[in-house]
Computed example of a mutant assay.
Amino acid sequence: MRVEIWTDISCPWCYVGQARFEKALASFPHRADVEVVHRSFQLDPHRTKGDAEPIIGFLMRGKGWTREQAQANEDTLSRQSAALGLKYVMGRDHGYTFDMHRLLHFAKEQGRQRELLTLLYRANFAEERSVYDDDERLVDLAAEAGLDADAARKVLADPSAHAEDVHADLREAAAVGATGVPFFVLDRRFAVSGAQRPEVFTQALTKAWESRSSLPVVAGAAHGDACGPDGCPVPH
């Protein structure tokens, strides 16, 4: 079973939602048969590199909140994170994430996507130093995730590297109806929107697993040639 998760590194509820989902997955009886695919989403697609700003100011400007409302939102996120054993630094920055998504696609090719995603979340939400507009900071995180530092640096230096992969994820997000993140799609059968409680994810995983069905195959035809999305013939 495949679970696709659309997230953005700048999204604090993605940070919380990812931890809640992983908690549910850890206790799911069929977790070894669940493939988790992380997909890119941009909450602030018009933001450009070098345009980071303090989160409180961003919330006041973007949502029209008062400073007290923005601070209350940060307080809530801090409590929710702490309940999961996660550190949450209030007063962090908000900024450009497209390069991080490109680097995550590079990490996916190397089988290190989850490791890098975890480190990016930690750097953005649990550490004082800003993760935005600092390519060498991203290179350090890539190396910590087990990637080659020079290769990661080359990806960041080339704006076209994995850019289409990110755009493809954004198109897929629109196709599945994801207008906000985190957004979880289970086997393209069920969707869970938002940072739900672990028990909600457990219910969704169970329902998706139980709804899986395989069509009976006529005797003698199981290994016949067939056409598939990639051409003909395709053993399927």
Rank of each mutant, 00 (worst) to 15 (best):
R2M: 05
E4S: 10
I9Y: 02
S10D: 11
P12M: 02
P29F: 01
R31Y: 06
A32K: 14
V34S: 03
E35Q: 12
E35I: 05
V36I: 09
H38S: 12
S40I: 00
F41T: 03
Q42R: 08
T48H: 14
K49W: 13
E53Q: 13
I55H: 04
I56E: 04
F58E: 06
F58V: 00
L59K: 10
T66Q: 12
T66L: 13
Q71I: 15
A72E: 13
A72C: 06
R79H: 14
R79V: 15
Q80A: 15
S81W: 01
A82P: 02
G85I: 10
R92P: 12
H94P: 08
D99L: 02
L103T: 03
H105D: 07
F106P: 05
A107T: 03
E115W: 02
L116A: 08
L119A: 03
A123C: 07
F125N: 07
F125Q: 00
E128G: 10
R129P: 01
E136R: 03
L138V: 01
V139D: 00
V139M: 00
A142I: 08
A142G: 11
D148G: 11
D148R: 00
L156K: 01
A168E: 11
A168L: 05
R171Y: 01
G177M: 14
G177R: 03
T179P: 12
T179E: 11
V181D: 13
P182I: 05
V185H: 07
L186S: 05
F190L: 13
F190S: 09
S193Y: 03
G194S: 09
Q196P: 07
R197P: 15
P198C: 00
V200W: 07
L205T: 07
L205D: 02
E210Y: 10
R212N: 08
V217I: 12
V218P: 11
A219R: 06
A219N: 03
A222C: 11
H223L: 13
G224C: 14
G224L: 14
C227H: 08
G228L: 01
C232N: 10
P233I: 03
P233W: 03
H236Y: 13
